[in-house]
Write a protein that binds this DNA or RNA. Structure first.
Lengths: 253, 253
DNA sequence: AAGTGGTCTAGACCACGCG
DNA sequence: GCGTGGTCTAGACCACTTG
């Protein structure tokens, strides 16, 4: 018997497509996520148990579990053995996505712009060589860009890429984010390692970002890897701390 | 037929325990992780395919897949359909764990210390009430602590907890990290939402942390939730940026 | 004792990348 | 065409929580 206080928005799952290319578990998890974010499943709601969901949807339990797990992984649901599955109390929302700052800004509806300060080929110093796993002194693409949102400077981005990306043009960089350009070339970033910190701005940085000389900067250093596990990009960026910050959701395994 | 250039450290898996309480997939993934981190499986190595591993270990394919998935999730392995599974090139290592600063510091072998500056019960203002999901004006525990490592001040931590934690003693707080105390009471943090930024230090902060007045501070604001999805802790912390930074590994889904 | 999620099996078929 | 990982099934038994 199912407890009376459980919820399951059955109507959302009437049109599951078993023939198309979209996995069943994804169809279920995305509809469920929408129901949670819209408030249809309020914080604290208890979902029906997995067996019951199985019967409602006509799919197997591992598939149901995978759908639920997707939402547990992003911190929207909490599972407890012997208890059930509940919507988390906090309306925690965004995740630090594996996207570029450019896309972050687009999503916040401030018009992003890019000024390319440096775009050349240099020999890798020890740090760049180590990060990109190329020999010291080999050629790498070097970028320095200034990023604006709604006309206001908010970040200075310095990046290094393997020489294979030497044919990226300055025009492309002015129009799009780096990750967009990479994706258009069939390169997908799969894993990234980031180090977030803070330091004083130097004179050049404070002038460009329109802040006080010596004022605080938020910094991020990142190495990104593609599908094949190859290092694709190393960069160290700095941000106006009153215009940008990093949001993360951590979920215990 | 298995390609000649694949690797599988079969000897590591001779003693899998099928009767004990430790899940098979975890036994496999943790041994595999150790082999990767030790360098026994160097970056770029191709693992044997999943069917072959199934036969080597005498376990089913979903179990093998789950073990591999654990390491994909932390950025150690990369899977490609039609290609296989490989060790990531970069030695991605630590993760921002769901632990307190205290434990972070212990792991880096600098002796952590805590000075309790404030420990009282206050009425929740609007922000605290919203974060902890309690009524405005209801009682909450208020903490302000100064954290040292090897005798050097590195952070000021301000936290709010529901009144149910009013029996935590100042002595406990001096000896242990907050999350340790919570765990000892049977409270496990499951989900946390963090916002990381930077700002200027005020005079009190700069004095306590031994930095210049107005110098840069790394800041973190966090709300943490337990197994049941209940808000357990809200805090805003600041760190000496030359002594502490945040490391994250992001993995695309 | 009853109900829940956690783990595991032994298959099946499909989609993608490559030669 | 072949090998790879991606998805899915229909069960089974176990461990934990609560009444």
């Amino acid at each position: 018997m199912v407890s009376a206080d459980t919820v399951w928005p059955d109507h959302l799952f009437a049109d599951l497509d078993r023939t198309g290319p979209i996995p069943l578990y994804f169809q279920v998890s995305s509809r469920l996520e929408a129901a949670i974010r819209s408030g249809e499943l309020p914080p604290g709601s208890r979902l029906e148990n997995e067996i019951a969901i199985t019967q409602h949807l006509g799919i197997s339990r591992p598939t149901v579990r995978r759908a639920i797990q997707e939402l547990v992984d992003i911190g929207l649901l909490v599972r407890r053995r012997g208890i059930g599955t509940q919507v988390v109390q906090g309306q925690i929302t965004r995740q630090v996505e594996l996207t570029s700052l450019y896309e972050d800004l687009k999503n916040t509806a401030r018009e992003p712009g890019t000024k390319v300060l440096i775009h050349d080929i240099v020999e890798a110093d020890e740090i760049v060589a180590e990060r990109l796993r190329v020999p010291v002194g080999s050629n790498v693409v070097h970028l320095r860009r200034q990023r604006t949102a709604g006309g206001v400077s908010i970040a200075i981005l310095e990046n290094y890429l393997p020489e294979a990306f030497g044919d990226i043009t300055t025009e492309q960089l002015q129009l799009r984010g780096l990750y967009q350009i990479l994706r258009a070339r069939g390169v997908t970033i799969r894993v990234a390692n980031q180090l977030i910190g803070a330091r004083r701005a130097d004179t050049d940085e404070s002038t460009r970002l329109g802040i006080d000389d010596g004022g605080p900067l938020l910094t991020m250093e990142r190495v990104a890897y593609d599908n094949a596990g190859e290092a694709i990009e190393y960069g160290h960026h700095c941000y106006r701390p009153d215009m940008y910050s990093f949001e993360t959701t951590l979920v215990a395994r």
